[in-house]
Design a protein around this nucleic acid. Sequence first.
DNA 1: TTTGGATATGCTTTATAAAGCATATCGATA
DNA 2: TATCGATATGCTTTATAAAGCATATCCAAA
Lengths: 116, 116
Amino acid sequence: MDSEQKKYSIGFRVWIKEENGHYLGRGRITLLEQIKTNGSITKAAKAMQMSYRQAWQMVEDMNKLSNNILVEKILGGKGGGGAKLTKAGEEAIEIFYLLEEKIKNYTEKLSKEINL
Amino acid sequence: MDSEQKKYSIGFRVWIKEENGHYLGRGRITLLEQIKTNGSITKAAKAMQMSYRQAWQMVEDMNKLSNNILVEKILGGKGGGGAKLTKAGEEAIEIFYLLEEKIKNYTEKLSKEINL
DNA sequence: TTTGGATATGCTTTATAAAGCATATCGATA
DNA sequence: TATCGATATGCTTTATAAAGCATATCCAAA
């Protein structure tokens, strides 16, 4: 009847803030996953084509804003060192995914109601 | 009992996509409002410290992706011309605010459930 | 006590999105 | 038909976040 022809959908980004700054977003969660997989910040950064500089800074920021650090640094050792996720780090990933998922479902529901 | 001390909240951004690209987000809605207030793209851009170039491009993009244009351009006339919102433009603002509001409420609800 | 590969960090370079500049064009009004 | 302040658009410059480079430091293991 009317001339609606274009199709619209809803996009979103979500993140968790702490009083002193950005805490967790998509990028940081991906970094955590890569650290988990690769066992070091260096390798994680390389894997996601990010500079070590930035990856290291992200880890630093996250750890500062968390109640319990998410990434544990290992200096020395037979491999020269590395980094691994703490329990809190693993949980952070879970929590963030759940959050994202819920909002995704909600926006999909909303997009059906919207009439542009 | 446990050592939870930091306070977390959820931040988000939402936008409306059309198949051929980004359609409406915070920035564009603000621009629409400024055009409504100021009656021209030039003045709207100035008011929000945005370059005319960019503001004009945004209007162009929005109009291309909408079923009915959101901004009507006026060339010539006693003031030399200007721009004003169409009915669809006014509605777009309403719809976007409603969308943002609903998601805001939902994230606030979710933030209470989250335990970091 | 040497080795190794990682963490840690200052400094320089680069990439690119945004801004800025210049100028042509538009057309209702008076 | 001259005017006016806006729209329209190519081209150049700038700002700045990200990347890249260089190098010092760390310490468990062998």
